[in-house]
Design a protein around this nucleic acid. Structure first.
Lengths: 189, 189, 189, 189
DNA sequence: GCGTAAACGAGACGGTACGTCGTGTCTTGAT
DNA sequence: ATCAAGACACGACGTACCGTCTCGTTTACGC
């Protein structure tokens, strides 16, 4: 099926070592202070091997994000209970991650990466659950009669995620009450 | 009163030239590709003169933001009419700016700057009207009976501004309907 | 006799392609800017095929020299006439080659190659006719009574060839008179 | 007199450190294996500081040669005695240097450098005494009646120096007899 | 014919060095 | 004292080759 006619094949060991090194250094130093040279050294790899497969730092970080190496956990949205409680729980999880030492810096680094690289923006969006899980959860709520059928799911998601990002940017940690108020605002309750 | 004991005083010409050069290059190249050397050259100023008064690129951009040299217009919130219409109008203004050529890049650059520099984050927040004008406008609406008295003003503001930032990050321009739906969501209407 | 137990033998096509590519690139770019990768690409051959048969760039160039692919012509020493005239003719030939566009660069490249590689030095020596043809020609002259029988042939040869190399190094082309004077000096005439 | 209007001045310390490091590494490793990065490291200097003042490795080595940092001694031509003896003495000095450990490699490195860089060729020429001291010495001999007045000084010089270079290239050390024969050849004695 | 083993093209790999750019600090002489 | 100019040590950039190392494919012998 492939028209590859021989020749060496991409080294999986090198690929993994590079992504692992990237994730490690990203967590340690943040996006801005992440250097290709640092990644190469940490991974025990030649710089050229990185540039052969990734055109830029952004692409590298993007792939890490895709493989789930940057976000500490999946942060999936609870599904079982009442919509409002589930959303509050989910946002609390996110804020807990951000409240951990270096947690907000990590999110800010991801935002910085997203400003440079379209793909990172898109994947960050997805990783935060917005594009997929969140709208799914809201749809479930509609089916369960907990949300009006004509509720604008996308806009609700954007408002929630956007508020989270804004908090990360302005370094103002949210408290439990703030999270509840936010959820109430977007749910109109 | 002053303990200044001779020698020239800070050159206003240099100060202005630096800020103007910074704003110009910021608009041209974005925050990441803005360099101190570039600013010095563009302003016809020695690097040391920049470092004497600003500790970092972030501080420089922060001051530009403070003097309103980075945002194309004030983007102030209309005050006269019905709250929903005013907010829609305001968000439309913001999106119009972002839809202009280079407009979204400029906003993303500001976000990038905010990830690096607390002060920029704070001032960006303000410039977008959130901290001051927006809450003021919402308070006016409460006084006019257009909004419930116990509406969580801060959270409404965060949801709106956050959604705007998220759109800038994910490069997905909003349409008029989307804006209206967003406003309706946060106003619970 | 051979312990070869099957498998293809060395590809003559590859061998020739490599030597031709080497000669071509040597003439184009000189010894220093000749690269193994360039030769492989130009010859349409894998790098390993070069390294399988030649240990180094020097060995490769040395073989080219041996096969007469680098020197434009044989530059053999005329034999028929009076010794002085024959030598003058021979040196004039050499200088004509060096005066041609790129001719002196080629000789300098050969010298550079000789500084790196013993074998090249030896073969360059031979190619220039010193070791063999020149001393033969001088011996002929002795037999013909045109040169004293105890004339130090080796030193005469070294003086002539050395002067040529020196001219190549210092980029000072010789004129006809200079050549005649040089021959007169070493012949003591 | 100078139109230098302020600003830092070239650091003599850096200049000397660079030239010293160059000379040291040249002697250790030869021209080919001399690297700008190595020089920078050895000199405790930034690469940019080298590139600011020298365009290339060749220029750097050329300056070293000019300041007499590469040649072990001056190798000046004896002046007092009989021409033939003085020349023999001088060539013996040169060959003694070349016979020392690394001596021939150093000369070959200088030749390699000369093939790359015109200036080095010229200065090597001078350093070996050819252009100046040698012709002066020969002129003195003419004045003293030890050499014919119409002897072609330049060609004599070229023959001598050229023979030396050729020996360096072909790695064939000269013996005392060979030197005497060479001098006799060019002097016609 | 049928393994088998060497040579081949392609090219990925860990490295070293390249020459350039930007950083933040510094020194100099003029204003 | 502040300024324009710019040299400096440092660190990262992205590229070019190095020489070694797999990969499949292509021969050409010996069985």
């Amino acid at each position: 099926m492939s028209d590859h006619r021989g020749g060496p094949v991409r080294s999986e060991a090198a690929r993994v070592a590079i992504l692992e090194a990237t994730a490690r250094l990203f967590a340690e130093r943040g996006y801005d202070h992440l250097t290709m040279e640092g990644v190469a050294a940490e991974a025990g790899v030649a710089k050229q091997t990185i540039y052969r497969w990734w055109p830029s730092k952004g692409a590298l970080v993007s792939d890490c994000l895709l493989e789930g190496r940057l976000m500490p956990e999946r942060l999936s949205i609870p599904t079982g209970g009442v919509l409002r409680d589930d959303l509050v729980q989910w946002l609390s999880d996110i804020h807990r991650v951000m409240a951990a030492p270096g947690g907000d810096a990590l999110v800010r680094s991801l935002i910085a990466a997203a400003t440079e690289n379209v793909e990172i923006g898109r994947r960050l969006h997805e990783s935060l659950g917005a594009a997929s899980s969140l709208t799914e959860r809201l749809q479930t709520a509609i089916d369960a009669g907990q949300l009006r059928a004509d509720a604008p799911l996308d806009e609700i998601g954007e408002a929630l995620i956007g508020a989270v990002l804004l908090r990360a940017l302005s370094r103002s940690p949210a408290d439990a009450d703030g999270i509840e108020r936010l959820v109430d605002v977007v749910l109109g309750s």
